[in-house]
Amino acid sequence: MKRRLLALALLAAPMLACGSSTPEAENPETSATETTTTTNPTPTATPEAAPTATPTAAPAAAKEPSPEELKKAKAAQELAADRTKWEAEAKAEDTRFTPEIHAEAKKLADAKHASLDAALKVVLAGKHRVAKNAERDKYRHPQETLKFFGLTPKQTVLEYGPGEGWWTEILAPTLATQGKLLVTTTDPKGPADARSTFYGQRLVRFLDRAPELYSKVDRIVIDGKSPKFGLENKVDLVIVMRSLHGLHRDKLLPGFLAEVFKALKPGGVLGVEQHRAKADADPDKSAEQGYLPEAFVIKQAEAAGFKLEGKSEVNANAKDTKDYPEGVWTLPPTLELGDKDKDKYLAIGESDRMTLKFVKPKK
């Protein structure tokens, strides 16, 4: 019997040596069982009783990002690229603004103009303008558009959504001496990862570059999700250029138009330039592509209390087929597709746009 027990013990020893190094005695149930077996006067030692290796758990599979996470990651990547591009362009503009250009800008801002035509004659030719902006005059028709809206150098004007300052660099010197320019901006001190913060910072840098031109411009910080101006019967003209599609897409258009109506003096003007969709387009769908039907815009403005005073085709473009892979941003100046079919889209030019003049009734 002793020989048999000794043989069985020798057989079990190698198997114990090959067992898991993980201490199993931490399991109280296992510990109790082993104690009972050890104190049994006639143990039956078998190879099956030896500890076995604990299987190593397979590493957990990487969790697939959700659609929302993918969307955020893409947005962050695009924002970083836009910031990098903007920094390079801003530095180039800072360098371009020589003392001579600053001196000319001051002269422009100090001048008193007898009429809009007189003001725009010198302002549009000013060296303060970004070169790529001046190149777009053939598409945007600033003189004809502002004359249609009834702008004069003595008015108080609110520019909604100035973007990179295309209209601001025209309006500010025109109004600097006898009138007043107000521009909306998102908070430049907002979260660093918010695109709205980037837009606010971009405008600050633009305005601060030439204080002789822009120091008199009032900046109205707004919440892009609920624009409020804090103005009532103080403004002669509000211009909203190529922005209504975004307001409709974000379900803000009725509230926005009500805020504009409140800000305008009786008899004041809302000037609208907007990418024009096909007449039978669904506004909800076309807004995603940057366009809105003209009749829809008129209906929305009239619902807010405005009266349509006139239409202009100065910004019309019959070549715009309004059916592009990346919506209106396929066309210049954005050219979202890069070099793909670039010549084709350059030949079309900028979008077909409605230009509308609404009036707030005097009573």
Rank of each mutant, 00 (worst) to 15 (best):
Y291K: 03
D223G: 01
V314S: 13
A176T: 07
L346A: 15
E302G: 01
A32W: 11
D284G: 14
L11D: 10
L116S: 13
E29K: 11
F148G: 05
G161M: 04
P266N: 12
K189H: 14
G200Q: 00
K344S: 06
S115E: 01
A73I: 06
A114C: 00
A12K: 01
E69T: 04
E164P: 05
P41Q: 09
L158V: 06
A210F: 06
V157C: 08
G165W: 01
E104W: 03
V260T: 08
H275F: 13
D137M: 10
P41D: 15
T174P: 07
I101M: 08
A303F: 15
G338I: 14
G310F: 14
L79G: 02
F148L: 06
H141N: 13
C18I: 02
A7I: 03
R249L: 11
P254A: 09
W167R: 04
P266D: 14
L270V: 12
T334R: 08
E350P: 02
S115K: 02
H128W: 07
H275A: 15
P43H: 08
P14E: 03
G224E: 10
P211T: 00
D343V: 09
T321F: 04
L244F: 09
V122C: 03
L207C: 02
M241G: 05
R219K: 10
L356F: 02
A172G: 05
A9Q: 05
P227Y: 03
D223P: 02
T22H: 11
L213Q: 03
P142F: 02
T39R: 04
D110W: 01
F306I: 08
L70H: 10
T174E: 10
M1Y: 08
P173D: 04
E68P: 02
A58C: 03
I239A: 07
K262S: 13
N27A: 09
P67C: 09
M241C: 07
A81R: 08
E93D: 11
K63E: 15
E159D: 09
F296G: 13
D187L: 10
L264T: 10
R242S: 14
F149D: 04
T84I: 04
F149A: 00
A75Y: 10
A81Q: 12
V130C: 00
K234H: 11
P55D: 07
K72A: 15
V240C: 11
A118P: 09
E68A: 15
V269Y: 14
K106W: 01
A60V: 05
K360F: 09
A92G: 04
P266Y: 08
K311D: 06
L203G: 01
E29V: 13
L292A: 08
R353P: 12
R353E: 14
I170N: 01
